[in-house]
Design a protein around this nucleic acid. Structure first.
Length: 298
DNA sequence: AGCCAGGCCCTCC
DNA sequence: GGAGGGCCTGGC
């Protein structure tokens, strides 16, 4: 379990000066990634085959890695966190919309991550008709079963599995982890990637429409999941995933209750919000979820 | 107890 | 071509 590891990532922190807008809490806990936890005063996650801890102190970020040196991990992490994205410019491009302006005011500094597309693909196949606690459990189970133990963690933490490792799994094995009907999709898509029939990294250079078409050819990947992968890992800021929350937002606030199907809602929103529609989407999504979870406490 | 959740896929209109 | 039901599982 994430919280029990005291030996991992506990060396001297690497400190780097950073004064830009960055809300780690919203960024790491807004449903775009599922492997980060609160551990003491740190955020701890698994990325780049390492356990990583990060926190903000004054005008700097502190990073600890395990097993690799934080100084070596830092460039990867800065890229992952999209620290070079110009948030002010992005906000300007979507803030003609009042709903977006108020969400940006609440969660300024929340960034859309630039994740590994393979991990993103598998993670979002898991999200279908599920919920965050279950998704988080499912992904940890997959890592434990098919990933590699990370040295220095006493075997408690595991890397995200490679495409080859997951391609070797059977549907039954994945089902036993509690993935339900998603198991077949996971194995099938892993095999497609492991065979090299689809090159996910290459989709970073491809136009949005083309990348969308390739992704939706994978088992278990429809328009919504594909748009998540495009937004969170493939450099497509115009991607706009329409899930039930966004569906409700749009109908309630923008479409006056009229019912379009989800793909039509997406294209409408991409037109409405423009080239950074994905950022608008993520702020709407996070705002909506925060509102409903605080209004209906468990 | 039954419905629905951060959907996808297939069938039938 | 589009709406509707089925699918694993868990939580309320």
């Amino acid at each position: 379990m994430a919280g029990g590891v005291t030996t991992a990532a506990s060396g001297t922190p690497y400190r780097v000066s950073f004064n830009g807008p960055l809300d780690l809490e919203s960024t790491l806990f807004s449903g775009q990634v599922f492997r980060w936890r609160h551990v003491g005063h740190w955020y701890q996650g698994v990325a780049f085959d390492n356990v990583i801890r990060i926190r903000r102190t004054g005008g700097s970020l502190e990073v600890v890695g395990c097993p690799d040196a934080a100084a070596d991990l830092w460039p990867l992490l800065a890229d992952y966190l999209s620290l070079n994205a110009d948030l002010e410019r992005i906000y300007n491009s979507i803030s003609a919309d009042g709903r977006i302006r108020s969400a940006v005011a609440r969660y300024g500094g929340m960034r859309v991550l630039r994740q590994d597309p393979w991990e993103c693909l598998i993670s979002f196949i898991c999200t279908s008709a599920s919920n965050i606690p279950r998704i988080t459990r499912n992904i940890e189970s997959i890592c434990q079963a098919f990933g590699r133990p990370i040295s220095g963690t006493g075997g408690s933490m595991h890397t995200f599995p490679t495409p080859e490792a997951l391609a070797r799994a059977t549907e039954a094995e994945v089902r036993e982890l509690g993935l339900g009907y998603r198991a077949a999709y996971l194995v099938s898509s892993a095999r497609t990637i492991a065979e090299g029939a689809v090159d996910l990294m290459a989709l970073r250079e491809a136009p949005y429409e083309e990348a969308l078409e390739v992704l939706t050819s994978l088992d278990g990947v429809g328009d919504k999941v594909a748009n998540c992968i495009l937004l969170f890992s493939l450099d497509k800021p115009e991607a706009f995933p329409v899930d039930t929350h966004i569906d409700q937002c749009l109908r309630e606030w923008y479409l006056d209750g009229s019912k379009l199907n989800r793909v039509k809602m997406r294209t409408w929103a991409q037109e409405h919000f423009g080239r950074n529609a994905g950022y608008a989407n993520h702020y709407l999504f996070h705002d909506r979820r925060q509102q409903t979870s605080t209004r209906l406490p468990k």
